[in-house]
Design a protein around this nucleic acid. Structure first.
Length: 418
RNA sequence: GGGGGAGUGUCCCGAGCGGCAAAGGGGGCGGACUGUAAAUCCGCUGGCUAUGCCUUCGUAGGUUCGAGUCCUACCUCCCCCA
């Protein structure tokens, strides 16, 4: 589907690989060329941080703004109270209102890295759909909005069909999610003139419902644009690691760890990820995509630094790159590695190696530490731990007064007595 | 309402004659090989003050020297009949 677009917005999105499906490509293209398009993406408040999986849609908001349009980050403070059944085998756990509020606050911070908020013409807005959903009157809502929805049609949606075919419970609560999401679209249109909703490909049905509802409720033409679901070249879902999701909040995944995530990208994913997750010009991406074999590592470092710079700022990204360079390329002790502090007295009294690794958070228990020792996976100051009963003491303090603990070749933590 | 079936190692799927810390996968972690990649091969994949102790098979009781396994009740899910 290599259509040529005349608007900057769709041109950029299409050439960088963000587009999976558009409801009316030429209509949207024209709207984006002729005037300012207000567009939104909705984010559920199901967790304390967004993760790499959300990044694609955030990048779409970024490019939307860069190409002169107006982005809205819609926080699902209201819809999260219901829970989206799309792509889910089972019902989501129901969160308390307090949890949802806490999550929402925690999610907000990330957006300002990618889009600029304000009151200006194409400044971004952040809106919470609890504003209108929380106070809905059931009967009124059924009369004004509910009457426009056809159960017959809703039953044909993939998200619903899947549950029905597999004979898995779909509660009425969840069934209503897409109605609320559709209503959001119309409400945003009324409030802000928003005519485009973007999201992951699994949101297609929900978005299109919004367009339909808009038509029945007298909005002007609305549009849908979805991005593909990103998997790695070897088929794994993007952004899952040992610890689970790759979080965007800095307090849940430090910039250095975030940099490492991108640094370890599979070869085959490098060109695609450069286009999607950095803002490098495509000519530059093209040049980097030419690199082969060991040289591709250079491209991976650039990917890591650029992606990290977008989220955590240039300074943090460069620092992460430098820490990695010292650690991996020079084999030196970079004092900027993640550091865990322990009481000085514990060290002078003698601290068991196993406990030290647990303390550093590299392993979950003494038992796991023991197993890692058996497999040769633990190092203290770059020396493999042979004896699980070894004690660490002040004698082990390397330069800078820290002890370097390593799990495998990649994960390093400095233990610092205070 | 009646009849039948299922819930297993807190990531998932899944075996399990009354002796079970519980087969086998997947995933993950570590090692070897490399390039901090992929693929491949090997090891590991309940906790602890550890030749022993503690906690695990939907929940709560019971039988037994001993229960994931047998009995009772309850919860949840599925199928068939109404």
């Amino acid at each position: 589907m290599m259509t040529t677009y005349s608007s900057d917005f769709l041109h950029v999105l299409s050439t960088r690989g963000y587009i999976n499906q558009i409801s009316d490509p030429s209509g949207l293209d024209q709207a984006a060329r002729d005037g300012r398009v207000v567009a939104y993406v909705g984010y559920d408040c199901t967790g304390p941080s967004l993760h790499v999986g959300h990044l694609l849609s955030i990048m779409m908001l970024h490019w939307l703004q860069q190409t002169g349009q107006k982005p809205i980050a819609l926080m699902g403070g209201g819809t999260t109270r219901v829970g989206d059944p799309s792509g889910k085998d089972e019902a989501r756990r129901i969160l308390t209102y307090d949890q949802i509020e806490a999550n929402k606050e925690s999610l907000k911070t990330v957006f300002s890295r990618f889009i600029t908020f304000g009151a200006g013409r194409n400044d971004a807005l952040m809106i919470d759909n609890a504003e209108w959903l929380a106070s809905l009157n059931y009967i009124e809502f059924l009369r004004e909005v509910g009457r426009h929805f056809s159960i017959n049609r809703m039953l044909t949606f993939d998200s619903v069909k899947m549950r029905l075919e597999r004979e898995q419970e779909l509660s009425f609560l969840e069934f209503n999610y897409s109605i609320l999401q559709a209503y959001d679209f119309v409400e945003l249109y009324k409030r802000t003139g928003c005519i485009l909703q973007m999201g992951g490909s699994d949101q297609w049905g929900n978005i299109v419902s919004g367009i339909d509802l808009g038509r029945r409720m007298g909005t002007s033409q609305l549009y849908a644009l979805t991005c593909p679901l990103i998997t790695t070249a070897s088929g794994a879902k993007m952004g899952k690691t040992a610890e689970g999701a790759v979080w965007l909040n800095a307090d849940m995944r430090a910039p250095y760890e975030y940099w490492q995530f991108w640094r370890n990208t599979e070869d085959a994913d490098v060109p695609r990820f450069l286009k999607l997750f950095t803002t490098l010009p495509l000519t530059e991406v093209g040049r980097l995509a030419e690199l082969k074999d060991a040289e591709i590592n250079e491209a991976k470092k650039i990917l890591a630094t650029e992606a990290t710079a977008l989220l955590h700022g240039r300074e943090a990204a460069d620092a992460a790159a430098e820490t990695a360079r010292r650690t991996f390329e020079e084999g030196a002790l970079a004092e900027t590695l993640p550091t865990v502090e322990i009481a000085g007295a514990r060290l002078s009294d003698g601290l068991g190696v196993l406990a030290a690794f647990v303390e550093a958070g590299l392993v979950a228990s003494n038992g796991e530490a023991r197993r890692q020792v058996k497999g040769g996976g633990l190092k203290v100051n770059d020396v493999t731990v042979e004896d699980e009963r070894a004690m660490l003491g002040e004698k082990d303090l390397a330069g800078g007064g820290v002890i370097k603990l390593s799990l495998g070749r990649k994960r390093h933590v400095l233990l610092k007595p205070v």
